[in-house]
Write a protein that binds this DNA or RNA. Sequence first.
DNA 1: TAAAAATACTCCATAGGTATTTTAT
DNA 2: ATAAAATACCTATGGAGTATTTTTA
Lengths: 298, 298
Amino acid sequence: MNLWQLHIFCRVVECKSFSKAAEAVHLSQPTVSSHIKDLEEHFKCLLIDRLSKEAAPTAAGRLLYGYARRMLALRAEAETALAQHQGKMQGSIVIGGSTIPGGYLLPRAIGKFKLRYPQIRPALIVADTQRIIAGVVEGTIEVGVVGAESRDKRILQEHLIADQLRLIVPVNHPWSGVKAVLLEQLLSEPFIVRERGSGTLKSIQESLGRQGRSIEELNIVAEMGSTEAVRQAIRDGIGVSILSTLAVSEDLESGALKALSIEGLNLTRGLYITRHRQRSLSPLAAAFEEFLKKNLQR
Amino acid sequence: MNLWQLHIFCRVVECKSFSKAAEAVHLSQPTVSSHIKDLEEHFKCLLIDRLSKEAAPTAAGRLLYGYARRMLALRAEAETALAQHQGKMQGSIVIGGSTIPGGYLLPRAIGKFKLRYPQIRPALIVADTQRIIAGVVEGTIEVGVVGAESRDKRILQEHLIADQLRLIVPVNHPWSGVKAVLLEQLLSEPFIVRERGSGTLKSIQESLGRQGRSIEELNIVAEMGSTEAVRQAIRDGIGVSILSTLAVSEDLESGALKALSIEGLNLTRGLYITRHRQRSLSPLAAAFEEFLKKNLQR
DNA sequence: TAAAAATACTCCATAGGTATTTTAT
DNA sequence: ATAAAATACCTATGGAGTATTTTTA
């Protein structure tokens, strides 16, 4: 028994004729006969009375007809529902990301999402956390991913993934094979920092603060305007720095850079999926949020 | 899209794994993969997220899952409903028939009915109309077919088919090729009658009565105890008679006997399907009644 | 005799398999 | 390195056809 046979069966009942039904479903009459026979063998009972004048369903046939019609109606419903769903999954979606997620996490995620829904036109806005949150508040950004929690009542946030900040050193550095160092050891090491206002710098400052230390105690040898610049500087042996492992994942995989922990310093920070509390999400934005959670959240 | 693929799809959703689902439906994992792929191509969208940890339905997949479950539930319902129906269609059924229907109509009908429901044990009681109706009243007979209407309030009757009473003559008779004769011509013709009390005789008497004639005016040469005996007597050239065409259909087809009308004499009588007005019919008896109506009623 | 359904047969599309590769942890 | 899914490829069942026979009014 399958939907196709049930469809043929229903047509036979409605047309009161095998050959008429065959025409209606674009099959030959013997094919219709064999499908009805199949059904009758399956249910072990006659379903259609082959009367001389017309083909009429038996009691069992009428019983089946009711179920068959409902099943076929459900199939049609499913078809339209899925098509509607597809229809909603097109158009544009504006996604915001602060430096780290916007630079290293969202491009790949958006790429995969676009593969699933090729119809969409995604836009990624990369800016600092405050600007992204402002964009979400005013509605220019539907979904954001930022590295800090907001206290704004209009903002709804959910933890997405942990961003591991670790001490990054070049492969030829003495600490290259080391798992972890003491904070005291780091103080004398040439250290590269990001510009004031950087979220990463803020995280480092907070962590040091919790240990009663300050950024000023480090041996700062350079201040760079971007994560990329810091990465290059480390590779060039100018110094070491604390960076998101997301930003240097390629270097870590290839072995060009090494990541180590600093004893007693918790440098993990959360990345938060961020949206407006009241504003309703477009189906597309909802799907993207779900996509992120499913693919990244643990 | 078909029920089998939907079933596989549901199992994948429930097992959260292609290979587990494959095991559950006794298929290989690649076969499951290809069915899911089929569905996804059909709906032109991803239905299952192949996450590293588990397979989870997408939004579209969850939508489909709802419909699929309902369709599969309906299929299961249909299976049990049809099986139950079959279950009811067994056991015994007592059918009553007066001479003509009991002798010439019901045996073949019961044979065909038994072919449809091989599980049943039908019993046919042949007796005169009064006894059949009495049997229906007292409940020993579930369904009867008789050649007369009953005035009993407990009896429910429905016209089933017309029984054509016609003048039957042997093939070598002078009237053999004739379509109809006048009643006056018949009066002198050697005529065979059934015994007193026969339904057929009663019908003939009534018809003659409506024309202001009586049976006594006929040239009665013999009185026979059964329709079969009359039939043989006609074939043997003893005389002609008025018989149900049902009783001599074989002879009429083979050409051994001929049937003709009598001008101005309406010899048609109804055969009535007969059951108790209050007593509820067994599913089997109801099916038999319906079977008779569908196959004979016009 | 004509019309409808059943039967007989032939063919090919596809559901199923196994073996293997790819992918992601 | 492992486990799961995807891919490649082969086979055989059964769904489709046409031609014909059977059945019944």
